[in-house]
Amino acid sequence: MTASPDVVNDTPKAPEAPLPSATLGGDNKRSIEQITLLLFITVPFVALVAAIPLAWGWGVSWLDLALLASMYFIGCHGITIGFHRYFTHGSFKAKRPLRIALAIAGSLAVEGPLVRWVADHRKHHKFSDAEGDPHSPWRYGETVPALLKGLWWAHIAWMFDEEQTPQYKYAPDLIKDGAVRAISRQFVVWTVVSLMLPPLIGGLATWSWQGALTAFFWGSLVRVALLHHVTWSINSICHAVGKRPFKSRDRSGNVWWLAVLSCGESWHNLHHADPTCARHGVMKGQLDSSARIIRWFEKAGWAYDVRWPSQARIDARRQGETAGAA
């Protein structure tokens, strides 16, 4: 795969040949999409809120926890390694089977079609924390009320914006790939698989409808809500607070307490200082499970030309020991 540039020329260019039909989800979000999005935000969130008293009152089985954790980290790494570091930034090259597997794994996170996700994120990097950024928490200003409003926008509200990122402009390379385009268009199918797999396993493992129901609650609803809010926190929290040891043209920060759940994405300052780097947690003690798995892919021969950070590359991006929290 030829790595896609992180900054896309703002001047539209006519394609050499007509591009394939649009991927699922065009440049304008329809009412039915907004209603569906609202349901996928509110229903899992209600389950997440209910999870605490339910776990306290009735407990949660090891099977339910195993399904929650396994589905969570499959989807999370599908997003962090696949959608983000590979498809968006070209941090490494992948052989075809791994490329397809990463596209499917990311789709299981239920965060939208692959091509739309990548287009939004490439636009975010082009205009990061400036006018044009789809989800900057600094959109409304720097006062406390403005920042609170901006955090809400960056975390959730921006997804309901009717005007969407032009996919042909920001992700033409993915649209031209037939397999990737098909997986992106099949987002609804992968969503159904993601939600139905835990209850199927739970029901078969316990041979009961109750086992299927609790597996759906924990392995599907709670898992999706938790993963969504962790991912959205990278857009909101990690652009509002955190340490900034590296030079970047925005307000991206490192938020250590999100590192494990975000699979290494919350070391966000280095990522914006060096977007194509395959490892985000480059300093001592910074856990980055996504980078570790990429290393395993490389050793297995599935990934190659990985853009690992050298010490010189890291030092060149430091802004001094005086850099602190926002």
Rank of each mutant, 00 (worst) to 15 (best):
Ile100Trp: 06
Met71Phe: 15
Ser91His: 03
Lys126Asp: 06
His84Gly: 00
Arg96Ile: 04
Pro113Asn: 08
Ile100Tyr: 04
Leu108Phe: 10
Ala119Tyr: 06
Glu111Tyr: 03
Lys126Leu: 12
Ser91Ile: 04
Asp133Tyr: 12
Ser136Lys: 07
Ala119Ser: 15
Gly112Met: 10
Pro134Cys: 11
His124Trp: 07
Met71Tyr: 10
Ser107Phe: 02
Lys93Leu: 10
Lys95Tyr: 06
Thr80Arg: 03
Lys126Ile: 06
Phe83Ser: 09
Ala101Pro: 10
Val115Ala: 02
Ile79Val: 14
Val110Tyr: 04
His135Ser: 12
Leu98Arg: 00
Lys123Cys: 15
Ser70Ala: 14
Arg116His: 12
Glu111Asn: 12
Gly75Tyr: 13
Ser128Ile: 05
Glu131Asp: 14
Gly78Phe: 00
Ala94Ile: 00
Gly82Glu: 00
Lys93His: 12
Val115Asn: 03
Phe92Asn: 00
Lys95Gln: 13
Phe127Arg: 06
Pro97Ala: 14
Arg96His: 13
Asp120Tyr: 02
Ala130His: 15
Ala130Ser: 14
Thr80Phe: 06
Ala69Cys: 15
Gly106Trp: 01
Ala69Lys: 04
Thr88Glu: 08
Leu102Arg: 00
Ala69Glu: 02
His124Asp: 06
Ile81Phe: 02
Phe87Asn: 00
Leu98Asn: 04
Ile81Ser: 01
Gly106Cys: 10
Val118Gln: 01
His121Glu: 11
His125Ser: 09
Ala103Gly: 15
Arg116Val: 07
Gly90Ile: 00
Ala94Leu: 02
Lys93Glu: 11
Ile100Asp: 03
Pro113Gln: 05
Trp138His: 15
Trp117Ala: 01
Ile104Phe: 10
Cys76Gln: 08
Ala109Arg: 05
Ser136Pro: 08
Arg116Phe: 09
Asp120Ser: 04
Ala109Met: 11
Gly106Ser: 11
Glu111Leu: 09
Val118Trp: 02
Gly112Leu: 08
Ala105Glu: 10
Asp120Leu: 05
Thr80Asn: 13
Phe83Pro: 00
Trp117Phe: 13
Ser107Gly: 15
Gly132Ser: 14
Cys76Met: 14
Ile104Arg: 08
Phe127Leu: 05
Ser128Leu: 06
Phe127Gln: 04
Trp138Val: 12
Gly106Thr: 08
Gly75Ser: 13
Thr88Ala: 14
His89Cys: 06
His135Arg: 12
Ile79Trp: 09
His89Glu: 02
Ala119Thr: 09
Pro134Lys: 03
His84Glu: 04
Ala105Met: 13
Gly75Pro: 13
Arg96Asn: 10
Ala69Arg: 02
Gly75His: 09
Ser107Ala: 15
Lys123Ile: 08
Leu108Thr: 09
Ser70His: 09
Trp117Asp: 03
Arg116Asp: 10
Arg116Pro: 01
Ile74Glu: 01
Ile81Val: 11
Pro134Phe: 04
Pro134Arg: 03
Gly106Leu: 07
Asp133Arg: 06
Ala119Lys: 05
Pro137Met: 10
Ser128His: 10
Ala130Met: 15
Val110Ser: 08
Tyr72Cys: 07
Ala101Met: 15
Val118Cys: 09
Ala105Gln: 07
Thr80Val: 15
Ala109Tyr: 03
Ile100Asn: 01
Thr80Ser: 14
Asp120Cys: 06
Leu108Gly: 01
Ser70Glu: 05
His77Ala: 07
Arg99Gln: 14
Gly132Glu: 14
Lys93Arg: 14
Ile74Arg: 00
Pro113Asp: 07
Ala94Gln: 00
Glu111His: 11
Tyr86Val: 02
